[in-house]
């Protein structure tokens, strides 16, 4: 299914914010503690099929995060360094990513939306699409 204004996706807002940019979608869950380098925004988990991908300033779409207590710190540190994603859209509800972005936004006056959508919806948001996320959690095509 292609992505058009007609089928914009309403996400559940886990952390409010707005962003626009290019989607990068990870096909497997990611650990933000150990599997991701917050200094560069690169996926470094050698077992991840997209190891080496850089998520810097992209709209990061992923199925879920691997639950490590350090996840929020990995998210916040990458936002601090400016090498983190500009938004995170997850195929499952995720307290850790939401809190990581919330704390970074408070400390560094950043604006990092975190949205939960369904796994089926993550399939629509393919790498390279340009999208716009509003504070209401609506994900729409961008750049027309």
């Amino acid at each position: 299914m292609s992505f058009s204004a007609a089928n914009a996706i309403q996400g559940m807002v886990l952390n409010p914010g707005s962003a626009a940019g290019e989607v990068i979608r990870l096909d497997e869950p990611l650990s933000f503690w150990g599997g991701y380098d917050p200094a560069t925004g690169m996926v470094i988990d050698q077992h991840h099929p997209q190891s080496g991908v850089v998520v810097r300033q992209k709209i990061l779409v992923l199925p879920s995060s691997r639950g490590s207590a350090g996840t929020p710190a990995g998210v916040a540190e990458s936002i601090r360094t400016g090498h983190g994603p500009s938004a995170i859209v997850i195929g499952s509800s995720d307290v850790n990513i939401a809190i990581g972005a919330m704390v970074a936004d408070m400390l560094y006056s950043s604006d990092t939306p975190v949205l939960a959508i369904t796994l089926e919806e993550t399939a629509i948001l393919t790498t390279g699409l340009r999208v716009r996320i509003g504070r209401s959690g609506m994900i729409e095509p961008d750049g027309d």
Binding site: P38, G74, A76, R80
Partner: peptide, 8 residues
Amino acid sequence: YGTAHNDF
């Protein structure tokens, strides 16, 4: 795990 921990 990074400076964000300290800032927090």
